[in-house]
Simulated assay, not measured.
Amino acid sequence: MNEPPGSGTMVKSDKQVAAVPVTRSVSRTRDWRKGMSDHVAYGLLVYTGLQIIFTIKALGEGTSSILPYLSLVVLVAGIIPVCRWFERRWADLDDAEAADPALAAPFRRDAAILWALAIGLPITLTLVFKAVLSFF
């Protein structure tokens, strides 16, 4: 009785298949510590990228002031400590808390605030600095 594969019966193979032991845990719990660390890393990359884009644009418009450099100093002096605060807040969790599903809402809130800062701050800083320069 030769039936095609997928018809409900098992088809035997002449080849042996080597058993590969699975070393990863089947459990897929979220580690809030690693998650926030990832958000911080990507947020800093996005912030830096936007900051550089806006700085290059300001330099291209002929702004010969200290504006672009001042905005880059704000990057170092302002955003990095804030990001470290977010990361440290979540890094201090013990193993049980790091996998606690009850922390999903605070995690999403902190991640949303972090991303709002990473995207909104370069735009806001550029607009504020341009407004200040328009008065001088």
Score class of each variant (00 low, 15 high):
Y69V: 05
L70M: 12
L70P: 04
S71L: 12
S71E: 13
V73K: 11
V73N: 05
L75Q: 08
L75W: 10
V76E: 10
V76H: 07
V76N: 08
A77S: 09
A77N: 06
A77I: 10
A77E: 06
A77F: 09
G78H: 00
G78Y: 13
G78F: 04
I79T: 10
I79G: 11
I80W: 02
I80V: 10
I80S: 03
I80P: 05
I80Q: 09
P81A: 00
V82W: 10
V82F: 03
C83D: 11
C83G: 11
R84Y: 06
R84W: 15
R84N: 15
R84D: 14
W85F: 09
W85Q: 12
E87F: 13
E87Q: 13
E87G: 11
R88N: 02
R89H: 06
R89C: 00
W90F: 06
W90G: 01
A91F: 05
D92W: 14
D92T: 15
D92V: 13
L93S: 01
L93H: 02
D94L: 01
D94S: 02
D94H: 01
D94N: 08
D95T: 04
A96R: 08
E97C: 06
E97R: 15
E97W: 05
E97G: 14
E97H: 13
A98L: 06
A99Q: 12
A99V: 06
A99D: 13
A99I: 12
A99G: 05
D100F: 02
D100H: 00
D100Y: 00
P101N: 10
P101H: 06
P101T: 04
A102D: 10
A102V: 14
A104V: 05
A105I: 02
A105Q: 05
P106F: 01
P106V: 00
P106A: 01
P106M: 03
P106T: 06
F107E: 00
R108I: 08
R108T: 14
D110F: 02
D110N: 04
A111G: 07
A112W: 04
A112Y: 07
I113Q: 04
L114A: 04
L114V: 12
W115A: 14
W115N: 12
W115I: 15
A116K: 08
L117D: 09
L117R: 11
L117M: 10
L117H: 11
A118R: 03
A118G: 11
A118H: 03
A118D: 05
A118E: 03
A118K: 01
A118M: 02
A118W: 00
I119G: 03
G120K: 04
G120P: 04
P122M: 00
P122A: 00
I123H: 01
I123G: 01
T124K: 06
L125W: 13
T126S: 07
T126L: 02
T126V: 07
F129A: 14
A131D: 05
A131N: 12
A131E: 10
A131F: 07
V132W: 09
V132H: 12
S134F: 14
S134R: 04
S134C: 06
F135L: 15
F135K: 15
